[in-house]
Amino acid sequence: MKGLTYFSIALLFLILIGLIYKSVPILKETSFGNLFFSTEWQPLKMKFGLLPFIISTLYVTIVAVVISVPLCLLTAIYLSEYADKRVIAFVNPLIDILAGIPSVIFGIWGIIEVVPLVRDYIAPAFGTTSSGYTILTGGIVLSIMIFPIIIHVLLEVFETIPEDLKNASLSVGATKWQTVKLVILRKAAPGVISAIVLGLSRAFGETLAVLMVVGNVIMIPISPLDPGYPITALIANNYGEMMSIPLYDSALMLASLILFVIVLVFNFISRRILKNIERKIA
């Protein structure tokens, strides 16, 4: 029992060490600037500029979070403060189901519904043409994928706010909305931020759904209607040839390492904040 428990902790460090070990060759061969600040990705010429991929990942993630957060906040406030029990009993299982849908299904749905939406309506509305496979498309699909995690964490955070604190505000004649706005959201701020960061890191590491809809063109996207090529897509698309070109596998492992470290840090910080909130209540 004890051994297995230590193993499960060690897994975190094993992954880190494994990825670092595999990334060392490329870090030795190529300069830092050539890896992170170069846009040239030509494995055959030993050029591994990761910048377009990093920017694409950040861009898609930010679009997803910008779409998702307001909707999730409003939904979570509604469910925790306004909705009656029957609504909650109806909505919660559906959100759980949404959480269970595999990313390839989101990807397919993105191709069926969102790609045409962007191509036929959104792009023309902004006076451009687009294939529909864009950063925005990826962002929309991702935003829905991260609904469940953000809403779930937000609901848990709002649940920790004592009824008596709300009553304190209501009893001086504040309306429910004023109480939400001035007291609950302020009190819940660290938890809300954690929820957002958890959603963000989920979006950050999502692979298949994004890969299927963002176009996978190696360039630095400027407009949300440009295609992009996120890190996860880079790794997934090139696994086939990575063993046949020198340093290629190491470059992809480095890309995985970047994903891992960023998600690790985000998760660690937000989980710590959430734990502290829980502890304060208990």
């Binding site: 990825l19 070990y21 997934a236 998600v263 690790l264 660690f268 989980r271």
Partner: peptide, 26 residues
């Protein structure tokens, strides 16, 4: 136990492609 839980929660959040890359390395 708290530390273990924290690690597990963090592991839960690690993207599956990273597990894939790690599995490949193994």
């Amino acid at each position: 136990a708290d530390f273990t839980r924290l690690c597990l929660d963090v592991l839960w959040g690690i993207p599956s492609i990273v597990y894939g890359a790690f599995g490949f390395a193994i």
